[in-house]
Structure formats: structure tokens, C-alpha cells
């Protein structure tokens, strides 16, 4: 019975793993002089500074937090 319940999760994990491998295997080496688009300020792989308060209220008003490079504790948010 447990195995039946686990099956969809395993399938989802397999899809994620296969997708990740497919994406990473399609990488091409990009030289420094070819990175003008990647170096654009909007292309950074993190939240913007202006999202600081947004991230705080979301972590207070929602049960989930983390995995976004920000804080994972500290501050009450009790109101």
C-alpha cells in the first residue's frame, strides 16, 4: 500500500532528475566575452534588493520559507 502511495512521488522525482540531467547536458561553454546578456543586472540568479520587505512579509504570512538565498531565521513577525 505504501509503495502505491510513493509511486507518484517517485515518478515526479524521476521527471525532475531526467529534466535536470537533460538541461545540464545541453550546456555549452560560454566565454567571458560572450556573457554580455548573462551579465545584465536583471539576469542575476537571486531576489532583487527591492524585494527585501516583500520576502520578509511572505515568510511571516506564509508557513514556508527558505531556498531563495535569503534569511532562514531571525525576527519575530508575530503580528
Amino acid at each position: 500500500m505504501k509503495l502505491v502511495k510513493l509511486k507518484p512521488k517517485v515518478n515526479r522525482l524521476a521527471v525532475v532528475a531526467v529534466s535536470a540531467v537533460a538541461i545540464l547536458s545541453s550546456c555549452t561553454t560560454v566565454k567571458e566575452y560572450q556573457k554580455n546578456k548573462l551579465n545584465d543586472g536583471e539576469m542575476t540568479l537571486s531576489s532583487r534588493k527591492i524585494q527585501k520587505t516583500e520576502s520578509s512579509f511572505q515568510s511571516y504570512r506564509e508557513g514556508a520559507s527558505g531556498a531563495n538565498g535569503g534569511k532562514t531565521g531571525g525576527g519575530c513577525g508575530c503580528n
Binding site: 538541461i23 545540464l24 550546456c27 546578456k37 548573462l38 540568479l45
Partner: peptide, 10 residues
């Protein structure tokens, strides 16, 4: 983090 090509990074 990984650069995939000149336009995509993950």
C-alpha cells in the same frame, strides 16, 4: 548555478 548558453542560466 550553471550557465546553459549565452542566454540561459539556472
Amino acid at each position: 548555478s550553471q550557465i546553459i548558453n549565452q542566454r540561459l542560466q539556472i
